[in-house]
Design a protein around this nucleic acid. Structure first.
Length: 792
DNA sequence: GTGCGTATTCTTTTT
DNA sequence: GAATACGCAC
């Protein structure tokens, strides 16, 4: 199909291009083998992408089934599908809009039989694969060589993202190193176990699809012919395996003629990728920024379109974002701009503790709410999931409605994993891990010894672990154990009858619910929880009810859905809360989760050294730069209001530590931030003059915070560093009052707040906090160790 | 085999 | 501070 046969109709043209700026139009209209859209934050890339798809469909250049659109998250996929449907209606149906992982699962399920798997293969999440590796590490006594399950897991994951397998790795590895040899053994074991269990881990989903395409070109050709237009979103976050997958799919289809002559049957599919190297935040997971920077080399003749106009944020927010990101060297200069006006200043706040910080956030959220911003238009970001707890505690007390995106997932709960393991045991009996997991849940008196006995019996008789359960009498076990095993076997059998009817017909989608209920009830799992006196078990029963409700919902949405479809959805769709949630709650999430979203008001919390940039990233090459991009992503989510907050002390490991302001804060020009309470207000001795909060110098106390714009022309002068600017703050050389003893009733003098009376002392040792009522500045909490105070 | 108490380690980010 | 690991008693 060509443009000549199906020219764009004028009507379609108008409609789809209306309101787009020139580069956006170009990105929608360009036709050619390869297109790279460099889309800055908030530059309307989703709009461009959806309109491009719609334009292909409207002009009849492509059938829906010829389009493959890849997004990074399921949420983004859902959103894109919805938006395309809004434009082109039902014809959006046949398109593949999904994540890399879902698309690969679809392909693998179709082709599984080609290479020794069945359609019902299980998908191991990271917890599953860690459990498996734990066993292998123990069996091989690899811990003696310093190998841990987590370490092995991450190495294997990295290797798979590079499309390496145990054999290819072994070729280049130093096999004289015993630890290295052991690792190779375990890698090999792990892969064999997966194969035996008819299972793929997350990384396999991509890598095995690539291997499949390479090993079976005729299979690959089917997909090459089918997908004529491939669009990849968040291209900067693709890893090598994903990149190779795209390459495989965009090869021209070659057909071999009778005489052995090769000619091109069909040209390569057209490829559109959208990305922003400034928003690459998944290098830790193997994302290779070069995939985007070297796009033009890899796809000669590629068209590049730059989208730099931002339609999301006010100029102040963009200025801050630009100022931060330009500190990353080795990037193409790119400046976001907006015509929406300056907007409000960014608000800064420093709390004494993470609770103090959380209280500030809660207070501001209430203020915003009163000013007319809905809760669902506000979001709070943090670097690590553990930071959400302090926020939750305060939000609950302050009655701020909130929802946590991602984080501890519903499907990570033990009872849910148990229930799913029951379903897996039925759907994919080869999955030994699943069967082992449920073997003694609820307690049946089957421990390690019995488990091993069963495994040995299975091996001796050439049975699978699951099938061995049908022969309890032959294992030399006691009558009690025999009965327990027979009963488990019976329950699995019954559920199997429901989910896979003997008639050979496909079970109705309602069978999933029915099967799950049978498994939970007749196995005694639910009874055991109900009888328990542990109050947590009550919640577990409720969670299981919830899971049953999920299966009903699934059956409703997928009338043709099978148990395998259900398990796929559960394995790949991480969070339960989706975007159609109109619950009117503030969203809490990590900075990573925040990518691709936007809110009227955004709070970036914990802007501290060791958090952002995270301590662990400091030693890794490119780590601090990636952290800066992460911070940049957080900032650019905000439409109207941006808050940056931190705490001077933070509890982690159950211990309170002193926190330092993040180096990124000083990269933001001072004029952009209005500090409600700057780090200097909290514990720095600061300037030479007394400076009570209510007696600020003109311009506020904030001008020590943030760097003035660099002199025009860049200048070769080295940039000021944290050390110059914040003596005693960003270094470890904090003022130390040593063992200054204070007690309630004492009078003290504070460099900034003047004189006051101590009300109370809380905390211990170096983390003692004085609650002080100042004569002028009012009530304050001070960290005794570092506060600029003296006893009178 | 199970249950309980104590010791130890741990936390980056996700499909 | 929490989740897991290990040791010991029943």
């Amino acid at each position: 199909m060509t443009d000549a046969l199906f020219p764009l109709s004028a009507a379609a043209d108008d409609d789809l291009l209306k309101g787009l700026n020139p580069p956006q139009r170009e990105a929608v209209e360009y036709r050619g083998p390869a297109l790279l859209i460099v889309a800055g934050a908030g530059s309307g890339k989703t709009r461009v992408l959806t309109h491009r798809i719609a334009s292909l469909l409207r002009s009849r250049e492509a059938w829906p089934s010829q389009i493959l659109a890849i997004t990074f998250t399921n949420k983004a996929a859902g959103e894109m599908r919805e938006r395309v449907e809004q434009i082109v209606g039902d014809s959006a149906r046949g398109m593949w809009i999904s994540t890399f992982h879902s698309a690969c699962v679809r392909i693998l399920r179709r082709e599984a039989e080609q290479f020794g798997f069945t359609k019902a293969f299980t998908i191991y999440d990271s917890g599953d694969s860690r459990a498996l590796l734990k066993r292998l590490v123990r069996e091989r006594e690899a811990d003696a060589l310093g190998l841990t399950p987590a370490g092995v897991q991450s190495r294997i994951s990295k290797l798979k993202n590079e499309l390496a397998d145990a054999e290819s790795y072994a070729r280049d590895a130093n096999m004289n190193d015993p630890a290295e040899r052991k690792f190779v053994e375990i890698f090999g074991d792990y892969q064999r176990e997966l194969q035996k269990a008819n299972a793929f881990d997350f990384d396999d989903l991509i890598a095995q699809t690539v291997f499949l395409f390479r090993a079976f070109p005729h299979v690959a050709d089917v997909y090459r012919k089918r997908f004529r237009h491939i669009l990849v979103d968040e291209y900067q976050d693709t890893n090598h395996a994903q990149y190779q997958l795209i390459r495989e799919l965009t090869r021209p289809v070659q057909a071999e003629a009778a005489g052995g002559m090769v000619f091109e049957d069909e040209p390569a599919a057209s490829l559109t990728v959208v990305g922003d190297s400034d928003q690459s935040i998944y290098a830790f997971r193997g994302a290779d920024i070069r995939n985007i920077t070297e796009f033009e080399r890899d796809f000669p003749g590629a068209k590049v379109v730059l989208l730099e106009q931002n339609y999301r944020s006010s100029q102040n927010i963009l200025d801050a974002a630009n100022a931060v990101i330009r500190n990353n060297f080795d990037r193409k200069d790119k400046r976001l701009w907006s015509d929406q006006g300056e907007g409000e200043k960014i608000v800064g706040f420093t709390g004494y503790s993470q609770h103090d910080e959380a209280q500030f956030v809660a207070d501001e959220i209430e203020k915003l709410r009163r000013s007319g911003i809905d809760y669902q238009q506000m979001a709070v970001f943090y670097r690590t999931n553990s930071q959400s707890r302090a926020l939750e505690e305060i939000f609950i007390r302050a009655a701020v409605p909130y929802k946590i995106m991602g984080g501890t997932k519903f499907y990570d709960r033990a009872e849910i994993k148990d229930a799913l393991a029951y379903l897996v045991a039925v759907a994919n009996p080869a999955d030994e891990m699943a069967v082992r997991r449920i073997l003694n849940k609820p307690k049946r008196g089957i421990g390690d010894v019995t488990e091993t006995t069963i495994a040995r019996f299975a091996a001796d008789n050439g049975l699978s672990f699951r099938d061995a359960l049908a022969h309890p009498a032959e294992m030399g076990l006691g009558p009690k154990l025999q009965k327990a095993i027979a009963q488990l076997d019976e329950v699995l059998r019954e559920a199997s009858g429901i989910l896979f009817p003997a008639s050979g017909e496909q079970a109705p989608s309602s069978a999933v619910t029915e099967g799950l209920q049978v498994l939970l009830n007749k196995s005694g799992y639910l009874d055991a929880l109900r009888m328990s006196r542990d109050p947590q078990d009550e919640a577990r029963v409720e969670n299981l009810d919830e899971l049953v409700a999920v299966t009903r919902e699934f059956a409703r949405n997928n009338p043709e859905g099978t148990i395998v479809d259900f398990l796929t959805e559960v394995a790949l769709v991480a969070d339960t809360d989706d975007l159609d949630d109109e619950s009117g709650a503030v969203s809490l999430m990590t900075l990573h989760t925040a990518k691709g979203l936007e809110f009227d008001a955004v709070f970036v919390t914990g802007v501290e050294e060791d958090l952002i940039p995270h301590r662990i990233s400091a030693g890794e090459p490119g780590g601090p730069q990636e952290e800066r991009r992460l911070f940049y992503v957080g900032i650019t989510r905000a439409r109207k209001r941006l808050y940056l907050s931190l705490a001077m002390t933070r509890a982690q490991f159950g211990e309170v530590t002193v926190a330092m302001p993040s180096r990124f804060l000083q990269e933001i020009p001072a004029a952009l931030i209005d500090w409600k309470q700057s780090p200097g207000d909290v514990n720095s001795r600061g300037g030479t003059q007394s400076r009570a909060l209510n007696a600020r110098r003109p311009g506020g106390s904030s001008d020590r915070w943030g760097v003035k714009p660099l002199p025009a022309g860049g200048g070769l002068k080295p940039k000021s560093t944290a050390m110059d600017r914040f003596p005693g703050l960003v270094t470890n050389k904090v003022r130390d009052n040593g063992d200054l003893e204070l007690a309630a009733g004492d009078r003290i003098r504070h460099d900034d707040f003047g004189e006051g009376t101590v009300d109370a002392i809380t905390g211990e040792g170096a983390k003692r906090i004085a609650h002080v009522r100042f004569d002028e500045a009012g009530a304050k909490k001070l960290l005794i160790k570092v506060a600029p105070i003296a006893k009178l």
